[in-house]
Write a protein that binds this DNA or RNA. Structure first.
Length: 476
DNA sequence: CGGGTTTGACCTGCGC
DNA sequence: GCGCAGGTCAAACCCG
């Protein structure tokens, strides 16, 4: 009788604050509550954390958690006393209902826990997949170049730090991944992480298996020195690296637009305008207003030579989830900055054209040219024989990835560039509209055929499936 | 009236 | 140290 009373009492206590409960705790409380009154209280600490059992083991005696728990106990105890007094009047029907209610709550919690776990796993896998694809692109390029990595070690090539330490939208992308993944279904991508066994990670890209020997997270943890908590360390690493000025890459997006500003899905507030030297058009300064304290800045300036061309330069990373329309952009710039920061560009003989430094800006800048493509399109000026681009941004010529064809005798570098653009393509993969184009691109490059640059940039005008977020760059 | 824009002042870094 | 240019601030202004 006493056992039954307890069994009915504790679920009642829980049903009062069931939102904070974990299934493991309730299981244990119902069936294993014979002697210990403390344990269930301690377990309730877990209800505020995403990881249930392991975290409980780690911080079982946390004082702060105990504080939180105290409040719950006070509330619960009162309810429990009242229930005990009610128990004097036999009300088995109510206790059955309460137990049933608790059971439902418990099931609900289990499902939520499972969903959280699945979401975390998927986020993690997508992060890893992104890095794997980038590495694969680098590996392919490296093989094609016999000795083209002068001044750049393999470790540099494979160093994931820059990817994790992205200072241009990359953390936002990682943040976004947690929020946006529900929108971007994994089955939309033809890339799939097949297995992760030990150090081997197998990725299937359109039916072709690609085995990456070294685990990304292992590399990451090696770099960061803490193998157990890569996500936390990643953010830590981001902060650390972001303190290094050179790691603050910028991404410029060159687009043809008559509008004063391209719509990239984010909300911006103008905080300044300045006349730049050598350009009759003023440069406008915007900061992101989608979240309080978002550090992202962007500069918008028209090209002095062609005022229909808008140069948008993004800097730093968002600290908030991005709307779907902004996600593709964020990931594109993220990937571009990642490759820039990874030192990939440094291996190119024309590195100075790809990543530039200027006196005014101590940050390397990568430019994504969305105004040009090998295939002429109606509203795009045809490729000229003379390199009208690179644009004189920051006083140095910029070379857009899809502009490499302007350089004769650089077939191999062109292919490497294709790999790079391919990586950008992978970064945009979160946009479901990119699926088909992405699939063909990846298929092309994975089969080893020298890809045409146009196929590598689905966002380019003329691509059969233009993502909305990228279309704005060209048409707005 | 609240939020966004404008614009002159100020700060900072760099080259000479 | 000085001047220049880029970047930011903040008060004034504008607009719905």
């Amino acid at each position: 009788m006493e056992m039954k009373q307890r069994a009915s009492e504790l679920p009642f206590l829980r049903s009062d604050d069931f939102l904070c409960l974990s299934s493991a705790a309730s299981d244990r409380t119902i069936h294993d509550n014979s002697s210990d009154h403390v344990k269930p209280h301690i377990k309730e600490m877990d209800f505020f954390s995403t990881n249930n059992q392991s975290q409980y083991d780690n911080k079982g005696s946390s004082s702060s958690a105990s504080d939180v728990n105290t409040g719950l106990n006070l509330l619960s105890s009162r309810q429990g006393v009242s229930w005990i007094s009610n128990e004097k009047k036999p009300n088995t029907e109510m206790s059955v209902l309460i137990i049933e209610l608790e059971r439902l709550h418990e099931e609900n919690r289990r499902l939520r826990s499972m969903l959280d776990q699945i979401t975390r796993n998927y986020n993690e896998l997508q992060d890893q997949l992104f890095m794997v694809v980038q590495k694969q692109a680098l590996a392919n390029s490296k093989q094609q170049l016999k000795d083209g990595v002068k001044g750049m070690s393999v470790q540099q090539l494979m160093d994931p730090r820059p990817f994790a330490a992205l200072d241009v939208n990359e953390p936002s992308a990682s943040d976004d991944k947690r929020h946006e993944l529900s929108a971007s279904s994994p089955k939309n991508n033809n890339m799939e992480v097949m297995s992760m066994e030990g150090d081997l990670r197998k990725v299937q890209i359109q039916g072709k298996d690609v085995t990456v020997v070294k685990d990304d997270m292992d590399l990451t943890s090696q770099t960061r020195g803490s193998p157990k908590c890569p996500i936390v360390d990643q953010s830590k690493s981001e902060e650390q690296v972001s303190e290094v000025p050179f790691r603050k890459a910028r991404v410029s997006v060159i687009a043809r637009s008559e509008a004063p500003m391209i719509s990239d899905g984010c909300q911006w507030r103008k905080y300044g305008q300045k006349m730049a030297k050598g350009n009759p058009c003023p440069r406008a300064y915007y900061r992101c207003t989608m979240a309080v304290g978002c550090p992202v800045r962007k500069q918008v300036q028209r090209c002095a030579e062609d005022k229909s061309i808008l140069i948008t330069t993004y800097e730093r990373n968002h600290n908030h989830p991005l709307p779907p329309a902004a996600t593709a952009m964020a990931k594109t710039t993220s990937a571009a900055a990642a490759m820039l920061l990874s030192g990939y560009f440094n291996s190119l003989p024309y590195a100075s054209a790809m990543a530039t430094l200027s006196a005014s800006s101590p940050f390397p800048t990568v430019t994504l040219d969305l105004t040009q493509g090998p295939n002429p399109v109606p509203y795009i000026r045809p490729p000229s024989s003379t390199p009208t681009f690179p644009l004189p941004l920051h006083g140095y010529p910029m070379l857009a990835p899809n502009n490499l064809s302007a350089f004769p005798g650089m077939q191999m570098e062109q292919e490497r560039s294709a790999s790079m653009v391919e990586t950008v393509t992978a970064a945009i993969a979160s946009d479901p509209n990119f699926t088909a184009a992405l699939a063909s691109s990846i298929s092309t490059i994975m089969k080893g055929t020298p890809p045409t640059l146009s196929s590598k940039v689905p966002g380019l005008p003329g691509s059969p499936q233009l993502p909305q977020s990228c279309t704005t760059f060209s048409t707005n």
